[in-house]
């Protein structure tokens, strides 16, 4: 894999090589596609291996040379991981938590973003303050949260975890929607107000529907964050509220390197997030950069 970095420099032909234009283009094209191909391999290799591991009988685990595809694929890792070892529980909890977070984060985030975009509420300071939440290292928050949740009996509680996720997705939701509302013409809402709408109605019936595409992406971001987050879940859930990443990590912890089981559950856990990922592709860049870069 180290070769990727080394080869990477080649696709840009140095100016010193003065070749005939056609030939240079061809060489450049070959290098370009070779680089893309290499990266694709680097990307898909691990995915293939995890897939093979999930259907590999354990007898094929430590063979030399490695078994690239098992002669007799098995589904036992899937059924063991899902049924015997809490896979379903994890998936169910993750779905519930992510569902709650998605709805709440989008509602709360949209409202705040609308206010900040339309009325400059809180001015720069509020905006900066929200953004600074994005810097906060989770480990700094999770220790006191753990102690406080203990008092409130919110440990190992889906709602406790969801509340925390809402807060950590708010910078996403707010900033995405903020940039969205800023670009939306104010005239439509003004017209609605003139027509006798209340402020609420102007938001709910005019601005909100217009912002729908942005809302969908903000929702997807909130979902993906909640679905994939690990540290909070590791600390705050263990039994009833245990989420998928925690279950997977326990397949690899302590005595049990349950490779097949962890691969099987990983594959199951990847599906919904990937689906949403495809859905929000158009708004991905805006989301990743909290609106700083327009994709």
């Amino acid at each position: 894999m180290a070769a990727v970095g080394a080869r990477a420099r080649k696709p840009r032909p140095s100016g010193a090589e003065r070749m005939i234009l056609g030939r240079r283009l061809r060489v450049e094209g070959v290098l370009r596609f070779a680089f893309i191909g290499l990266f694709l391999l680097f990307l898909l290799g691990p995915l293939y291996w995890v897939f093979v591991t999930s259907i590999k009988p354990v007898a094929d685990y430590q063979t030399v040379p490695p078994v690239w595809f098992p002669d007799s694929p098995t589904s036992i890792h899937f059924s063991a991981a899902l049924n015997d070892l809490r896979g379903w529980t994890g998936l169910k909890n993750s779905a519930i938590v992510a569902g709650i977070v998605t709805v709440v984060s989008v509602l709360v985030g949209t409202a705040a973003a609308y206010s900040m975009a339309r009325f400059r509420t809180g001015g720069k300071n509020l905006a900066f303050w929200v953004l600074s939440q994005r810097i906060m290292p989770p480990i700094a928050v999770v220790i006191p949260i753990f102690l406080i949740y203990r008092e409130l009996d919110l440990i190992d509680n889906r709602f406790g975890l969801a509340a925390l996720y809402v807060v950590f997705t708010l910078p996403f939701s707010i900033w995405m929607m903020y940039t969205y509302f800023r670009q939306m013409p104010v005239e439509l809402e003004e017209a609605a107000l003139v027509d006798g709408c209340t402020r609420w109605q102007a938001l709910w019936k005019v601005a909100w529907p217009l912002a729908a595409p942005g809302i969908v992406s903000a929702a997807a971001f909130a979902f993906v964050f909640s679905w994939t987050e690990f540290l909070f879940a590791l600390v705050l859930t263990s039994n009833e509220a245990v989420t998928v990443p925690v279950v997977i990590s326990q397949f690899l912890a302590f005595q049990a390197a349950q490779f097949g089981e962890s691969s099987a559950l990983s594959l199951c856990a990847m599906v919904p997030a990937l689906f949403l990922g495809f859905l929000v592709q158009k708004h991905l860049v805006r989301g990743l950069t909290l609106g700083a870069v327009q994709g």
Binding site: P57, V58, A59, Y61, T74, I76, H77, S79, A80, D84, L85, A256, A257, Q258, F259, G260, E261
Partner: peptide, 9 residues
Amino acid sequence: DESFSFIPE
């Protein structure tokens, strides 16, 4: 037992 599927025969 199925739950020992992480161990080979």
